Simulated scan of single mutants.
Amino acid sequence: MKQVNIINFLDINKGKLATTISEDYKPVFLKQGDLDGACGPYCLMMALLINGAVEMEDVNDLWNIKLSSRLGKLVKAMREHDTLFTNGTDIKDIVLMVDNSFGK
């Protein structure tokens, strides 16, 4: 039988999941990119997939991609930016990477 467990000390505050264990509401939910700053590259890869510029098989194996291909050049630029994108990426970073990989 399926069971639903209620966590009493969680609530939504200002649109964010938060804990009510202390007097202050403290956010507790993390989403993709919160820890590694790679949300920009994830969005870019999804946009390239949607537009047919890359194939899922290629995106699923970025470590073994031919670096001289258009996608490979993009992956190389992402690696040079920093493996974990600890400083995040902004639109200028993404535009530069795409322009250098896929052309203008």
Rank of each mutant, 00 (worst) to 15 (best):
M1S: 13
K2S: 07
K2A: 08
Q3M: 12
V4L: 06
V4Y: 05
N5W: 11
N5F: 12
I7N: 06
N8E: 10
N8G: 11
L10T: 08
D11T: 11
I12T: 12
K14Q: 15
K14D: 14
T19Y: 02
E23V: 09
D24I: 07
D24S: 13
K26Y: 15
P27R: 08
V28R: 05
L30T: 13
Q32C: 08
L35M: 15
D36R: 13
C39L: 12
P41Q: 00
P41D: 01
Y42Q: 09
C43M: 14
L44M: 11
A47L: 11
A47Q: 07
A47D: 05
L48T: 00
L48V: 05
L49M: 15
L49I: 12
G52K: 06
A53P: 03
A53N: 10
V54I: 14
V54F: 05
E55D: 07
M56V: 09
E57Q: 13
E57N: 12
D58L: 00
V59K: 04
L62R: 01
N64G: 05
I65M: 00
K66D: 01
S68K: 07
S68A: 04
L71Q: 00
K73T: 00
V75C: 02
K76T: 06
K76P: 02
A77V: 06
A77N: 08
M78D: 07
R79P: 05
E80T: 06
H81L: 03
H81K: 04
L84S: 10
F85S: 02
T86L: 15
T89E: 01
D90A: 10
L96Q: 06
L96Y: 07
M97P: 04
V98E: 14
V98F: 15
V98K: 11
V98R: 09
D99W: 04
N100H: 14
S101T: 08
G103I: 09
